[in-house]
Amino acid sequence: MATPTTLRGHRRAHRRPAARGHLPVAAVAVPVVLGIVYGLYTAFILSSSSDNAFTTAKTVLSIVSGLVLAVLAFGFGRIQHALPREARAAGYGVLIGGAMGFLYSITGESVLLSSFIGAGFGIGALITTFYLFYTHED
């Protein structure tokens, strides 16, 4: 007797779409953790500068820089699926390049060198994310 190719009564499990208005945990957790780590690293760079004292200005700069990165990452994460892969890769390149250029600029280096460092990281992130999006397209 031949075996049937499909089993009767067997249904594929369907994923239910997420309810409107509810964000997945990762959509909020990843930007928050990224902002916290970025703010702490900014504080570390600022504390290892010429004077090791923590001042109010250094603390505020660390908190604001982490907050700005978290808000930008959250905002970009919300709109990235509506963008084509080229624009999405460029967005990640700008976000990563700007963040790394800022971190390098607070070490006391020149603005031109910080811009080149940020542009290098941005171009690297653009190429990497474009390749990732291109090869993992549905």
Results as ranks from 00 to 15, higher is better:
I96V: 14
A90T: 06
S105R: 14
V68D: 02
Y104V: 07
L113C: 00
A82K: 10
V111I: 12
F76N: 09
M100Q: 12
A90P: 11
V94K: 04
G118H: 05
E109W: 15
G98Y: 13
P84D: 05
L112R: 11
Y92F: 14
A73Q: 06
T107G: 08
L103S: 11
R85I: 08
I117G: 06
Y92G: 09
A70K: 03
L72A: 12
F74R: 01
I106T: 08
L95D: 09
G97L: 02
G77L: 05
S105W: 13
F76W: 12
G118A: 03
L83R: 00
Q80S: 06
S105Q: 11
F76P: 00
T107E: 15
L103N: 10
V94Y: 07
I106D: 03
I96S: 11
I106S: 03
G98T: 00
S65R: 06
E109T: 10
H81C: 04
T107V: 06
V94R: 09
H81S: 13
G101N: 11
R88H: 08
V68S: 03
A82G: 06
R78V: 00
S114A: 15
I79R: 04
G93P: 02
V71S: 02
Y92W: 15
S110C: 03
I106H: 12
I79F: 13
A87H: 08
A70E: 06
F121Y: 15
G97C: 12
A89L: 06
F116N: 10
Q80L: 04
F121M: 15
I106Y: 10
I117H: 07
A99R: 03
S65N: 11
A73V: 15
A82F: 07
F116T: 02
G101L: 10
